[in-house]
């Protein structure tokens, strides 16, 4: 893109006989040099400091128990987000209800779960048996032993899911409110019921506003799952901790966990990019090309080897 415009500018300038002298940017060169020097120093220390234990990092990067930890982390993220999104939609619709009791209940839920640290909530769920040793759910004949029911895993799912629901409901509510009221009116005038209007007309359009922060929340959730290591759920961090508790190779194993977190969040970021494009349909006349499409176009219009083409 930039290469093409520069060339056309040059061509246009020389066609009427003048020579164009490009502006110099000494500041850009200076800042680039400073950053490259700092990056080089950092890189050298990372490579030469033996305490990083890169050989041990390489050894454990594909360790079986680390792999199992990754699966637990991914599963926990997916289930908690699913619960969070479902609860979020329900409570967002409740927040917009005409019934003041329904509205207040939704507000109270959001307020409680956003107002307390998720770590405290996790510990609460984990220790639920101390609060209600027997869970009856108010139904006669139902007697559940809280100690058996609330495993570390269920405590983690409940804690993360319910907490996420509170955040998601605010995101969904903002999305619903972003849809023009004329849309609801048009649907109403056609005789479409309120529930159908919400499902078919309002929510799909609200998605454009809901998706980007939800992507961020998913990435955030992936990292928040590390908290459940305190209630000994064998996810990625806890799996690493188990190993270094035995081998004392703390730093290399924390690096192993970090690298995996980084890789997965990077993949999620790419996924979010394409998801956002999908939901921008109909709102932009023409979507800008994806980086992949830009790359393809670049190679289609440029000589692949010299990178100096420019045939149209």
């Amino acid at each position: 893109m930039t290469a093409v415009t520069t060339r056309t500018e040059q061509a246009a300038a020389t066609s009427d006989g003048y020579t164009v002298v490009k502006a110099k940017h000494p500041g850009r060169w200076l800042s680039a040099v400073v950053i490259i020097v700092i990056a080089g120093l950092l890189l050298r220390s990372v490579i030469t400091n033996p305490n990083f234990g890169w050989d041990i990092v390489g050894l454990y990067l594909r360790d079986v128990s680390i792999g199992r930890g990754i699966l637990v982390t991914l599963g926990l993220t997916a289930i908690s987000m699913a619960i969070g999104i479902v609860l979020g939609v329900i409570f967002a619709v409740m927040r917009l209800s005409a019934n003041p009791i329904v509205r207040s209940a939704a507000f109270a839920y959001v307020n409680f779960f956003r107002g307390t640290p998720v770590l405290v909530q996790l510990l609460f769920w984990f220790n639920l048996a101390a609060l209600y040793p027997v869970i009856t759910l108010g139904i006669p004949g139902v007697q559940l032993d809280a100690n058996q029911l609330i495993t570390p895993m269920t405590a983690a799912i409940l804690g993360l899911g319910l907490n996420q629901g509170a955040y998601m409901s605010e995101i969904v509510r903002a999305g619903i409110l972003s849809v023009d009221h004329g849309q609801t009116e048009a649907a109403e005038a056609l005789g479409i019921t309120r529930l159908q209007t919400m499902r078919r007309v309002v929510l799909p359009q609200a998605m454009r506003v809901i998706i980007p922060p939800t992507g961020n929340e998913t990435i955030g959730m992936l990292k928040t799952t590390a908290l459940v290591s305190v209630i000994s759920v064998p996810e990625l961090l806890y799996s690493a901790q188990i190993i270094y508790a035995r081998t004392f190779e703390t730093v290399p194993l924390l690096i192993v966990a970090s690298l995996w977190y980084l890789l997965i969040t990077s993949i999620l970021t790419v996924g979010q990019y394409y998801l956002e494009r999908r939901f921008a349909r109909g709102n932009q006349r023409n979507l800008p090309p994806t980086p992949l499409q830009q790359l393809k176009r670049f190679f289609a219009t440029h000589d692949a080897l010299s990178l100096k083409g420019g045939k149209k």
Binding site: D180, G182, Q183, E185, A186, A189, Q205
Partner: peptide, 17 residues
């Protein structure tokens, strides 16, 4: 009953998605 009455709005209000 509304479905028996058609309405056209100033701002069209087509469903953009």
């Amino acid at each position: 009953s509304r479905s028996e009455v058609g309405m056209v709005f100033q701002q069209f209000n087509l469903f953009p998605h």
